[in-house]
Simulated assay, not measured.
Amino acid sequence: MVKRHFRYSASILKTGQLLGALGALMAFMLGSLLLLELPNLSEMNPAQIYRDDRGNVHFELQILAIVSLIGALVAAANRKVKVTLDSETLSIKIPKLTGLGLMGLTTGEHRIPLHTIRKIELTPVTGFRNMAQAIQQSRLSLVTDSKTYLLQPYNFLRVGGPDHRMGLAGAFGKPKARVETMISEAPLVRALSEAAIEAHVTSTPVDRTGPLAKHFNLLKHRGMVVQLSLLAGLGLYALTDYLLLTNYLILGDLPMWPFVSVWLLASAMGIRLGRGAPGAEKLGVAAMLCIVAVAATYPGIQRYTLIVSPEPAPVAYKMTETAHFEHSSYPAIDQRSSNIEEYWQSLEPGTDVVFPVHKPALGFALVDMSPVYEKSRAFYRARK
């Protein structure tokens, strides 16, 4: 029997369709950046493609870079997953860095003589609303004389063979009647059923909505519904007000007590509202509520400062060096990393520049940089 080699794929989508979906997502993110952040194309400074008005790299690009890095690391680890099958042995090599162990799957290096395999068990999961989730949660169990090995049946592709994975349309289809057939016809399952002659293949469908759900419906628990509503509301507020406040610069150190207080309040509220729910769901939703609440605190304390001090006071700062301003009663304003360097260089050191400052309400002041950005745009238009 010729050796058959199998490689692992975290995705159940065909490579072309997966790349197309990722490309569409990146195009959407970049398109959103262009629509929301860039000025009129005739006034565009190339640096504005990746930096905001304060000289910081756009938040969307930071997230995209982090996601891309994580994806590259996962892909590199997954390439080391190998399964080899010959006439006598099944060899498994799954590094722990892949994270499959966190899903309860087998990791490490194993050599399994085929004659020791007593049973090949398939566990199709049919409770999900789409095929992608059902396939990912389905399992292949190899029961031997001394140990049981747990793998994902559909995610192994035969090296040199056709790509058996599905397209986007199939991934979102209903899995109820198809998932069992699809995993039983997966290349690794078929190869094992042919090679392990002494083992018999069984299939036991399981109707569930996830490894932690245990048929618990969050929407039927009043406390969970309240928490989910708070998550949606706070998340929407945090995103909206963050975008509306991008022209404001914080002067001074942020106080920690609002963040700590919100964290403690959200924790207590989450645990209280989650009473009666399973532990995993209660802790998971409470943790998400804490994270979103703390994220919403940042624009919240800025908004509070604007409410308490709605009218800014003009404060004359002295430019001690290019793009660096000082005042005896307020923290320094450092714009040396901004993307309007030429504008700042046009001002002589020692020049007084007036900034609209909202007086401190929680220990820090806010500077409205909109007038500065307007002057800088006029400066660059005049240079053309």
Rank of each mutant, 00 (worst) to 15 (best):
R4T: 08
R4M: 09
H5P: 00
F6I: 02
G16M: 07
L19T: 06
L22M: 11
A24W: 14
M26R: 06
G31A: 13
L34G: 12
E37R: 13
L41E: 05
P46D: 05
A47M: 03
A47R: 03
I49V: 13
Q62P: 00
A65F: 15
I66D: 01
V67H: 03
V67G: 02
L73S: 06
L73R: 09
T89R: 13
L100M: 05
L102F: 07
G104H: 10
G104S: 10
G104V: 11
T106Y: 03
T107N: 01
L114P: 11
K119A: 12
I120S: 07
P124V: 04
V125N: 15
V125S: 10
F128M: 14
R129K: 14
A132K: 10
A134E: 07
R139I: 15
L140R: 13
D145M: 06
D145L: 12
D145E: 11
S146T: 15
L151I: 06
L151P: 04
P153R: 10
P153Y: 09
H164A: 08
G167V: 04
L168F: 14
A169E: 08
F172Q: 03
G173F: 03
P175N: 07
R178K: 04
E180T: 11
S184K: 07
A186S: 12
L188P: 03
R190H: 03
L192P: 12
H200V: 14
T209I: 10
G210A: 08
K220W: 01
V225E: 01
V226D: 01
L228D: 01
A238K: 07
A238E: 05
L239H: 07
T240Q: 06
D241T: 12
D253E: 15
L254Q: 11
P255C: 09
M256H: 13
L264E: 06
A266E: 14
L273C: 10
G279A: 15
E281P: 02
L283N: 12
A287W: 15
M288A: 15
I291C: 12
V292D: 11
V294S: 10
A295Y: 09
Y298Q: 10
I301A: 05
R303L: 12
R303T: 11
Y304C: 01
L306P: 05
V308W: 00
P310G: 04
P312E: 03
P314G: 07
V315C: 02
Y317T: 08
M319Y: 07
M319Q: 14
M319W: 06
T322Q: 14
T322E: 14
H324S: 08
F325E: 08
H327C: 10
H327R: 09
S329L: 14
S329M: 09
Y330V: 04
D334M: 06
D334K: 06
S337Q: 06
E341A: 08
E342Y: 06
P349R: 04
K359Q: 00
A361V: 00
L362A: 00
A365L: 00
L366C: 01
L366I: 01
V367P: 09
M369W: 08
S376Y: 05
R381I: 04
